[in-house]
Computed example of a mutant assay.
Amino acid sequence: MAKNWTAEEEEHIRNNFPAQTYGELAEHFSVTTKAMESKIRRMGLKKQAILAEAIRPPEPAPVVQYEKPTVPKEPTPEPIESIHKLERRIEVYEETKKERTVRLEKTRDAAEVEKARREESRKQAPVAQALKTFEAGVKKLNAGKNSEAAKDFQALLDGPPTDMGLVLRARQYLSATISAEPLEPTLKTAEEMYNHGVVLFNNGDVEGALKILGVAAKQAPKDDRIMYVRALALGVSGDEEGATEQLQAAININETNRVYAHNDPDFAPLHGNPRFQELTEPQGEDDID
């Protein structure tokens, strides 16, 4: 006798059909396997279709198409019209008569100022030169060059007057150079003159030495020391004849002067003079070289 299937039984079949065999389902409902297969066919169930549905891969996600963002284009500026095509406007300023008068007066005043400046500059040029000369004289005076400084100060006094203050100062400094000159000592005796003459000769003042020794020789014509130093000074000055004459006179008074002259290096200018060689030649064993 055929089995009447309830809705619950059919639902059970649908839920368990994929996992259970026909035999297991038939045993559950107490029917034959053949009857179970027939029921399943009538219900339209197919195990292969259910399995295929179960293992079907998921459908791919739909591809979303994105539009590439576009940068809005800047509006193209309107072309600038060539400057040569622009209308040129030149405004000509008309100077009024009053303005022209003022402008000319300013120009004339500026010219007068420049003229005065140039005249003042020309006046100051001699003063500047005089000041330069004065400063040079002061430097020489401070350096002990009194005679050279005196020339600068005298030049200021001899020149055309420039600045009265500068002239007065030049006169004062000129007096200072004169007062700063070493004064010749007051010499009275031939001995004092002889000693001073030796000092002058040793200091290189040959002319001064000859001058003072000449005065001393007049006071002491027989002083061989004065003659000897005069011979030295004359030899250095280049007067070989006068030098040998004075040396001869000194030797005549004191024979020792021959030895002194032979060994004195200050007579070097006369070493080539035959007369000097004759005068200084040793005369005997007592002469000492």
Rank of each mutant, 00 (worst) to 15 (best):
V63L: 11
F17C: 00
E74I: 14
A54W: 04
P62W: 04
Q283M: 09
M193L: 13
A220F: 04
L86Q: 14
L174N: 07
W5A: 02
A130N: 07
K139V: 15
D224Y: 12
E120G: 12
K46Q: 15
P60V: 06
P69V: 13
I253P: 01
A110T: 09
R169G: 06
V229E: 04
E114I: 10
P72T: 12
L183Y: 10
I40D: 05
E105G: 14
L210F: 05
Y260F: 14
F153A: 01
F17L: 01
A170G: 07
V71A: 14
G284L: 08
I13A: 02
V215W: 09
L168N: 15
L45C: 04
V229K: 01
N203E: 15
A231R: 00
G235Y: 00
R258Y: 07
H84N: 09
R100K: 11
P274A: 08
E8H: 03
R56C: 12
S147Q: 11
F201L: 15
L86G: 11
V113G: 11
P265A: 09
P269R: 05
K68H: 08
P160W: 00
E37G: 06
M43K: 06
K97S: 15
A19S: 12
F153Q: 00
E255Y: 12
F276A: 03
A180L: 07
A2C: 03
V167F: 04
R89L: 11
K140M: 12
R89V: 15
E91D: 10
L131E: 13
K97N: 11
P75Q: 12
M164W: 03
K188N: 12
V92Q: 13
D224V: 09
T70M: 08
Q246S: 09
P182T: 14
L51W: 09
T189G: 02
A170I: 07
D224H: 13
Q277W: 10
M227R: 12
K218N: 14
M36Y: 02
A261Q: 02
G208Q: 05
L174S: 07
